[in-house]
């Protein structure tokens, strides 16, 4: 393959030059690739959709991880659902007081990411604070007796293997795994082009959490502008933590981040009106 053309939308598509193919796996129902692109570094695609690139993954991973952790301020136990590439795990482990459980449905994804996308996990999978469980995310939260302060859902597109992670049942089960005042955050697509995802997720979360909203990050290779990250908790104060408090937590966490900072943390909750219009 000389060029990769994304197949998300009928009328437009982004094209990447494939400079070197590192890994290609084609099973009966899915097509996974990792290749090098001169501008973006290693690019992982699944079923014709860009999942992550080395050049801009930090924006997504830092925002999905540090916003809930620093908003909460006292996270001891954290659950990652999905996230097989290891980027979220890497960011979570920067917080030294946190023990993390990661539930990934397919061990092969982790193995493949360690080998072909090593910068994403950056040895995080060797860290003794990381408890890796190979299981279906839905089954895990249904049967889980543990409680967590933060749940991070890092799944794929809702049309595909991660479909169950967008269901109301899943969000309800996650609530049972959250400590009092805990928060769940999830990847929720690019609303300018997929506004239904915002509407659906909002309605589903709103059934089970008193404070459901979104915050945003613009990841260049997720074509279409802002990406929404869903946010749901029963503690409405979590998204109103003051800048001063966040600054203190940020300083003591010593994150060495490239996208996240307290100012952008607070600003990320300011939503453009086309998204606000979906929240009712």
């Amino acid at each position: 393959m000389k060029y990769f053309k994304e197949t998300l939308y009928d009328a437009v598509c982004q094209e990447f030059r494939v400079d070197k193919m590192y890994f290609e796996q084609k099973t009966e129902h899915q097509h996974l690739m990792i290749f090098h692109n001169a501008m973006l570094g290693r690019v992982m695609t699944l079923d014709g959709i860009v999942q992550t690139t080395e050049a801009d993954e930090f924006m997504y991973h830092e925002m999905l991880t540090h916003v809930p952790i620093l908003a909460h301020g006292a996270v001891k136990k954290l659950l990652i659902i999905g996230g097989g590439d290891g980027g979220i795990l890497r960011e979570v482990l920067k917080h030294e007081s946190i023990d993390v459980t990661q539930v990934e449905i397919d061990k092969a994804v982790i193995d493949m990411a360690i080998e072909y996308l090593p910068k994403h996990s950056d040895s995080a999978y060797d860290n003794p604070r990381a408890n890796i469980v190979i299981d279906d995310g839905m089954a895990f939260v249904k049967n889980c007796s543990e409680k967590f302060d933060v749940i991070i859902v890092d799944g794929t597109d809702p049309i595909g293997p991660g479909e169950v992670l967008f269901t109301e049942d899943f969000y309800a089960q996650c609530k049972n795994c959250l400590n009092e005042g805990g928060v769940i955050v999830t990847q929720n697509g690019v609303p300018f082009l997929q506004i239904e995802e915002v509407k659906n997720t909002y309605q589903r979360l709103n059934q089970h959490y008193t404070d459901a909203t979104f915050y945003t990050v613009a990841v260049p290779t997720y074509y279409g502008g802002l990406m929404t990250l869903a946010w749901a908790t029963n503690n409405a104060e979590l998204r109103n933590v003051s800048l001063d408090t966040l600054e203190q937590r940020f300083k003591s966490a010593n994150l060495n981040s490239r996208y996240y900072n307290p100012a952008i943390h607070l600003a990320a909750f300011a939503l453009p009106q086309y998204i606000v219009n979906q929240l009712d």
Binding site: K5, E28, H29, G48
Partner: peptide, 11 residues
């Protein structure tokens, strides 16, 4: 499915 086995792009 048969096209997937040939890696034909959906486009």
């Amino acid at each position: 499915d048969i096209l997937l086995s040939l890696k034909v792009s959906g486009r």
